[in-house]
Nucleic acid binder design. Sequence first.
DNA 1: TACGGAATGG
DNA 2: CCATTCCGTA
Length: 154
Amino acid sequence: MKIISFDLLCRAQCSKNSGGGSVLFPDWAYKPAWSPGSRQVQLWHFLLELLGRGEGGAIGWGGEWGEFVIRDPERLARLWGERKGKPHMNYDKLSRALRYYYNKRILHKTKGKRFTYKFNFSKLILVNYPGYLPPSSHQALYSNNTVRLVKHFY
DNA sequence: TACGGAATGG
DNA sequence: CCATTCCGTA
């Protein structure tokens, strides 16, 4: 394992913390810059949005980097349902969507910890940028860097 | 609670 | 493609 540091754009909304440790995540992790506002919000975008603004009750960051705990599964499902216009959304269905993320390597389950999942931030780069993205390209895409983010890669 | 197949839809 | 819905299984 090596440690790489990136200079990345990160707005105020995504620099909030929840509870103990401060957790930063970059905009590229949930906002593909090349598709402005057209396509529908994805579940993991939504989760990062709630986590980023420290929504509090329904979902919060866990102990490890990228780990999060769903504190109120049915409330989270209700919020997600409201966003998508699906009034009958529940945790059973939301969690099925989360499980589809396992194969895509966007998420994985933290086994043994109830309602606890973990973002594969190192893999989200590949999701947002099909093909390889060298670290220097970050600087090209996000010129006005404000945050230094130290991330662990395998 | 958690998993993943199958059918379906936008 | 990305869920949504439903459900059998562990």
